[in-house]
C-alpha cells in the first residue's frame, strides 16, 4: 500500500537552536499518528514543517495526491500547496481563534472552505453547514451566531467542522484539547475518535497528554530535544517504553 504521507529527513532549525532534526516516518491511509514529548521538544515545529506553515531547512514531505500520486509538497508551487491545504489537508489549531474567523458566523466559518473551492449555491452551503454543526454537536439554531458567543469547547468543535467540511484526507492537529476543562476534553476526544473512524481519516496529532494518544493514536512518536527518540504502536510504547525518556514520560503520568 502507498503511504498517504512520507516524511523524509525533515529538519528545521531556528538559528543555532534545533527545532526538529532528521525526522522520517510513513503514515498510511486511515492511520492516526501521535507525537508526544515535553514542552519545547519540537512537536509543533515538526507539525508546522509538515503542514507547510514553516519552511524546513531540509527533508521531504511527500503526499499521495488524488491527481498525480505521491508528490513532494515542498516542490509544489504555492497555489498548489494552498489548494491542498484547503481541500485534502486540514489543520486544527490549539487556540480556536487561530483557526476560526471570529467576525464571521458559525455557518460562514464552516462554509468558507466550500466557497473557496467554488460552491456557489447558498442553500447547499447552508445545508452542509447545518449538517456539520450537527456532527460536532452544535445546535443548528446557533448557525448564525459568531464564535465569540461560543464556549471554548464549542469553538474547538466549530474549528473541527470548518476543517472537515471538504472531506480532507489528512488532518494535522496541534494540542486540539489543550486549554479545555477536563470534562470538555473528554467529550471532544470522543467526538474526534468518532469522526476519525467514520470518515477513515488519517491524522497527525501533537499533544503532551498521553491520555489523548492512548485514545486516538494507532502509532506514537516520542520527541526530545528535536529528535524522535522512540516510535511504535501506541499501546506498545506506553505499556513497555524502551527509551529512558519515554519511561520517564510514562511514569510521570502514572504518578499523577
Amino acid at each position: 500500500m502507498t503511504p498517504l504521507l512520507q516524511v523524509k529527513g525533515l529538519t528545521k532549525t531556528y538559528g543555532r537552536h534545533i527545532g526538529c532534526r532528521d525526522v522520517s516516518f510513513d503514515l498510511f491511509p486511515g492511520e492516526v499518528m501521535g507525537i508526544v514529548g515535553e514542552s519545547g521538544s519540537g512537536k509543533s515545529t515538526l507539525l508546522n514543517s509538515m503542514a507547510g506553515h514553516v519552511v524546513p531547512d531540509a527533508g521531504q514531505v511527500i503526499f499521495d495526491t488524488r491527481d498525480a500520486g505521491p508528490r513532494d509538497t515542498r516542490a509544489m508551487s504555492e497555489p498548489e500547496r494552498r489548494m491542498l491545504s484547503r481541500t485534502d489537508w486540514a489543520f486544527v489549531h490549539q487556540h480556536a481563534r487561530d483557526g476560526l474567523r471570529m467576525g464571521v458566523s458559525a455557518g460562514g466559518n464552516v462554509g468558507e472552505r466550500l466557497m473557496a473551492v467554488g460552491a456557489r449555491n447558498y442553500g447547499a452551503i447552508r445545508a452542509s453547514a447545518i449538517d456539520w454543526l450537527d456532527r460536532v454537536e452544535i445546535r443548528a439554531d446557533r448557525i448564525d451566531d459568531r464564535p465569540t458567543t461560543f464556549s471554548g469547547g464549542m469553538q474547538q468543535r466549530l474549528q473541527i467542522a470548518r476543517n472537515l467540511v471538504t472531506g480532507p484526507r489528512l488532518v494535522f492537529m496541534d494540542e486540539p484539547t489543550g486549554g479545555l476543562d477536563v470534562s470538555v476534553q473528554a467529550r471532544l476526544l470522543d467526538l474526534l475518535r468518532g469522526l476519525v473512524r467514520d470518515m477513515g481519516l488519517s491524522a497527525i496529532i501533537v499533544t503532551h497528554d498521553l491520555a489523548v494518544v492512548r485514545l486516538l493514536a494507532d502509532r506514537l512518536m516520542v520527541m526530545k530535544g528535536g529528535d524522535v527518540v522512540e516510535t511504535g504502536l501506541t499501546d506498545q510504547v506506553l505499556d513497555d517504553p524502551q527509551h529512558g525518556y519515554t519511561q520517564l514520560l510514562v511514569s510521570s503520568v502514572l504518578q499523577v
Partner: peptide, 29 residues
C-alpha cells in the same frame, strides 16, 4: 474580512476569492 495586506495581496495573486462569497453569505444569513 481579511485585514492583513500581505494576505489580501496573496489572495489576489492566487485568485483565491472564496472570502468574497463568505461576505455575501453573511449578508444573506
Amino acid at each position: 474580512l481579511e485585514p492583513r495586506e500581505s494576505e489580501t495581496r496573496k489572495m489576489h495573486a492566487l485568485e483565491e476569492y472564496g472570502l468574497m462569497h463568505v461576505k455575501l453569505y453573511e449578508d444573506i444569513s
